[in-house]
Design a protein around this nucleic acid. Structure first.
Lengths: 180, 180
DNA sequence: TATTGTTATACTCTATAACTATA
DNA sequence: TATAGTTATAGAGTATAACAATA
């Protein structure tokens, strides 16, 4: 196990990274705040899914997710269709305009990172990605206590660690869990 | 230079780390939100300083800093004394109660990290710290455009990269720059 | 009775702009 | 005229709780 002083220092570094995150937010389109961008990006990466699964991937309460999704729906970037398997549920799906926005967001973020990290080696970036992913993994479900389900979901981490599938495994996984 | 797809992936990882950051916020005392915690932690690390220097270290606009500082002053954790060298300015200093809070904050953060990252090696934590610091360094001054000074400050990065000095070099550096 | 999702409320963070006091 | 700092206002993120509809 690492030393105490290291953890202290690591804690401080989070604020620094927060500043970088704010900087990244500034390159987003005016009508697409970071909450909306996160919704679109996750839908683009994991495909159609339900609100509850999206909330899990976002690591926030579903009420937060609901508001973000409503914003994105208003702009025509995603559509909510009823889930035939569960009438309480709704399936979220990117529209063509939404997919275009996903592409635009990726381009903006990538451009800024490429500009700022122009002198980083391929390996350094890969290492940072790996350690950040491991960090998230070590923390597990980061949602507020009351939003965490009693049955620790086994599909969440697996989906989040997947190498960007193009189909809709997340949706299927959720449907499976319901009947388990 | 790293590949495009890497930057895209790195961009996504920021949201994941944001979730971890939210989790860390939850262990803070009820009357010490993350903005106040950041103020106290920086004062504890770099010693007495002026508002403008604190804003620079926080990477936010001074108006944000001002409000956070006011909150912390209200609770008696820091005090603002007039700067004898510049009557517009005020020097911020931790009170004994503030120092106690700094210690408490460090303990809480360290405990949570030690619990979650219990299986990380010393070297892995060190690598993550190093890469996060480099990331911040590559981004430079992350404050909103209008808050950035015309003269790119040379003391900011140096101070932020310092290995936790106990005296007040930040304050001195600022005073020096004024007369330069 | 439990779960899915929405809405209402409140608090924090952040940015912009207007303002005061001093350099 | 420019700078240090404060205050006002607005927008976004997040959490809690109350609620409706369905399982």
């Amino acid at each position: 196990m690492a030393e105490q002083t290291q953890f202290e220092e690591l804690g401080r570094q989070f604020s620094a990274v927060g500043a970088v995150h704010r900087d990244l937010r500034r390159v987003l389109p005016h009508d697409c705040p970071s909450g909306s961008a996160a919704v679109l990006t996750l839908l683009g990466r994991y495909g159609d899914m339900r609100m509850s699964k999206l909330a899990e991937l976002l690591s926030v309460d579903m009420s937060v997710t609901s508001r973000s999704v409503a914003h994105v729906v208003d702009r025509g970037w995603i559509e909510r269709s009823p889930d035939p398997a569960d009438k309480r549920s709704r399936i979220l799906r990117l529209t063509p305009a939404g997919q275009a926005m996903v592409d635009d967001l990726a381009r903006r973020t990538t451009d800024l990172l490429a500009e700022r990290l122009g002198d980083w080696t391929d390996d350094e970036v890969a290492q940072l990605i790996r350690l950040m992913a491991r960090l998230k993994d070590s923390f597990g479900d980061c949602r507020p206590p009351h939003a965490r389900p009693p049955h620790p979901s086994q599909s969440a981490t697996a989906a989040a660690a997947a190498p960007a599938p193009t189909s809709a495994p997340v949706l299927e996984a959720t449907a499976t869990r319901t009947s388990a």
